[in-house]
Design a protein around this nucleic acid. Structure first.
Lengths: 350, 350
DNA sequence: CATCACTATGTAAACGTCAACATGGCTGCC
DNA sequence: GGCAGCCATGTTGACGTTTACATAGTGATG
């Protein structure tokens, strides 16, 4: 275990060295490397032996220059430590790997400036395609950069003025369902904490929320709707503010995984009991909902499937199929658990 | 919003087009692109205007061919949906971004075959350096491939026969501490569920566990030690098996985040109460430990810092510093919460 | 047996960039 | 005023592949 670092900058063998070792020309080596049929079996074997001996791996940059393909897909997400996005990446990866593409995942940390940096880096690297989840639909710089890409782009759950395939998640209906449930239990003041209006999920959840209230003839109190940044801190702050306000809600909807964590923590810190003091609904982390006590009702969706679908759309584009932009809508489900009950001092109706 | 997809394969402008537009030679454009000082201010401005007009981004592949640098770092992790690894990536990213490097994160899903594939892809792409977390130290193919890399490698928390910088996490001491606590509370049968012996964390945790028992003169029952695959399913299965066995433990240590989830779920499914029926200690997910009821004692560590340190080591290597392999050991802490108590029917001692 | 049609292999140009070298105009100094 | 030296810019050859084209064998066929 002594001597130089393996890191010592050893030069990688080139096609020329393989050719010399095998006693053939570089053209033949190239043909063997790319599985061209026009090579005699005996020669092929000799070249393969030379490759193995030298540990040859073709230089992707040189190859990219000639072929205009990098076999690389860029994947832009707001936050890779968020399981929701990590699962999408996992689903996409599973589809791309067998096709020989590598996924280049990048976290913007919800900064449009970092998103632009990523898109530029992706363009410099001439990535073959992109899957993006923007953190703000109104950031024009990002949209401009996206339009310059020149390669297929699949957009996840955002409405932006770019001609691209999109994979949407259903947000209106599950919120409507769960708010309907709460209303039926007798809740009249329900707090909603979700993402900003600048992204589709935030807007749709507010839409679903209001729609459910209107259907039941319950007036909308804008004070109860908190559509801001998606983070645990924000979730905690909003939940705290709602629950310590003059006329607090009897139920809280924490729609977004980080918001879910923060809001739940705030409820705990206030020493409130679920569902006796306040009913609680989380989202996007079914496992957490299951592990805590009491188990928490959550709005859940299959993010791995989102990744798979997005990858599928992109691969079809990469195969050169020319067609109008497509949109896929994937469902969400409500997992009912014991964190919701009739509000305090009110017997469950019916 | 009509017409062709932006995806329409628009060719990216080259340095030649920029040169033609600006009315200069490609050499001058190259000098402007790489901030060389030998350019007249007026010319520089004209070239920059041309670049902006055409949306020029230099071709990374061509640049890589000339400079032998890709400004790309490969990051191999067992599972990107695991927060522990995602945080390491985040920490490393934060260090690399300002240096102009991009991080290429890849999940092996704990398959040595996939690890080899990744290492080969990394070599083809001539990545400038690597940070790797192997899923099995005994997989010789992976080690071989690692030795061929020819670029600096930083290894995370593994003992492998490769000359590389390593960032370790402390595993022995925190386990010893927490087992010591449990012994003092009166526990004599403690179950340990952790990763396989094929990786350092698994071995070290078992070492710490046995050491604590030996110090207290408590005999080691191998049946109570479950060092196998790191997954929620495995964690659940082992916990179930331990708790339904003929002579079950009075405390469970679920050392590993996925194992933690699974084991906790198993305890819930068995209808056991924590800490009345069984004391419980988790690891690597302090937030979950805080959100569940009762809050759970966890062994915690700062994974973002692990990423930062690893990135720091790699960057020094990339700067060409020649030095012997270095090792950094980062601490772990025990966050005591109410999930541990004296075993049933035994008053807390002292 | 000469020619044809293949087949296996070699050769060379091009991909886009950088950087070493070449060029030419200008400044300043004796 | 002539020339040294410098500065801005242009020219060119690599970097490692792929691939179209060239070439030289090898049978088969009339």
């Amino acid at each position: 275990m002594s001597g130089k670092m393996p890191a010592g900058g050893r030069r990688q063998p080139t096609i020329h060295e393989v050719a010399a070792t095998a006693g053939v020309s570089i053209g033949t080596v190239s043909r063997v490397a790319s599985d061209s049929p026009r090579v005699a079996p005996e020669t092929r074997a000799r070249v393969q032996a030379a490759m193995a001996e030298l540990g040859y791996q073709p230089n992707a940059a040189a190859r990219a220059m000639r072929t205009n393909q990098t076999k690389t897909i860029g994947f832009l997400i707001p936050d890779m430590t968020n399981q929701v996005f990590a699962r999408v990446a996992q689903g996409a990866e599973a589809v791309f790997a067998p096709e020989g593409y590598m996924l280049f995942a990048f976290s913007s940390n919800r900064s449009p400036a970092r998103e632009i940096e990523f898109l530029q880096a992706a363009r410099q690297r001439r990535m073959d395609g992109l899957i993006v989840t923007l953190s703000d639909e109104t950031a024009t710089g990002t949209i401009e950069e996206l339009k310059r890409m020149g390669v297929p782009v699949v957009v996840l759950d955002r409405d932006i003025p770019v001609e691209a395939d999109v994979v949407y998640s259903e947000h209106i209906q599950p919120i409507e369902t769960v708010v309907g449930q709460l209303l039926q239990l007798g809740h009249r003041r329900i707090g909603l904490i979700t993402a900003s209006h600048n992204i589709r999920p935030g807007r749709d959840r507010v839409t679903g929320f209001k729609r459910a209230l209107e259907k039941a003839g319950v007036p909308v109190d804008e004070w109860l709707i908190r559509a801001r940044t998606q983070s645990a801190e924000r979730g905690a702050a909003e939940a705290h503010d709602l629950l310590t306000g003059p006329n607090p809600p009897t139920a809280i909807l924490a729609a977004g995984s980080d918001i879910f964590y923060g809001a739940l923590k705030a409820v705990r810190l206030l020493g409130l009991s679920i569902p006796d003091d306040v009913s609680f609904v989380g989202a996007d982390d079914a496992l957490l909902g299951e592990l805590v006590y009491p188990p928490i009702t959550v709005i859940d969706r299959d993010m791995v499937e989102v990744g798979r679908q997005a990858a599928g759309l992109l691969i079809e584009r990469l195969k050169g199929l020319d067609m109008p932009p497509r949109r896929i809508m994937l469902g969400s489900s409500v997992i009912l658990r014991s964190s919701i009950a009739a509000p305090k001092g009110m017997p469950e109706r019916r």
